[in-house]
Amino acid sequence: MKHAEKELASLKDEIGQMWRLVLSQLEKAKRAYLDSDVELAREIASREKRVNSFELKIDSDCENCIALYNPVAIDLRLVLSMMKISIMLERIGDFADAIAKYIIRESGAAADDTLKAELRVEAMLEAVTVMLADSYAALDTENTKLSGRILAQDEVVDEIYHDAVPVLAEAIRSGRISAEYGLKTMLIIRKIERIGDHCSNIVEEIVFYIDAKVLKHSKSAD
């Protein structure tokens, strides 16, 4: 393997490590939310800095690759995609951290399992976790056929998000939850919906890297 190839392989390996870390943060956020597990939430918050460090390192490595190796064709697409994907992974890491902090802040409030079930947050968290895992599999196996499935999952996430608004509004109106709690919960649901959007954007970058196709701002993948 030539030196430039080794650098690119190392870049891909690094993004894989970041991906696994963010995926683990997201899976833990899901468990912490469902079990109202404050300890687990604290663990997520403490590992957030590692996600940020990965982003800085990958950003710097991408700059070096461009400056030193002048990548072209598939190599250039790889570097450009990894730069963008690391930013999106970092944002997903931020959202996992925000969910963790929400769990820590609201730990004193009595858990309303019925409301959780009505909001379908578990399904939403499950969907975005699968999206993130599948998008990593798409990159790792260079298989863009997974893109259609991942983008379809985002529609499920969007649907749950839109359905949550009237459920929360009704819970606030009826006095079942405070307006403050309702608004904070809505913010968290919004963040999970944004995770789905970032996963979709990541898939678009993977398709750009592998197939040189631009899916951005188009309705769906081939």
Partner: peptide
């Protein structure tokens, strides 16, 4: 950015 032929890609990369 995206050559049609694999030989081209192998050469330029």
């Amino acid at each position: 950015l995206n050559p049609d032929r694999e030989e081209t890609q192998n050469y330029i990369t």
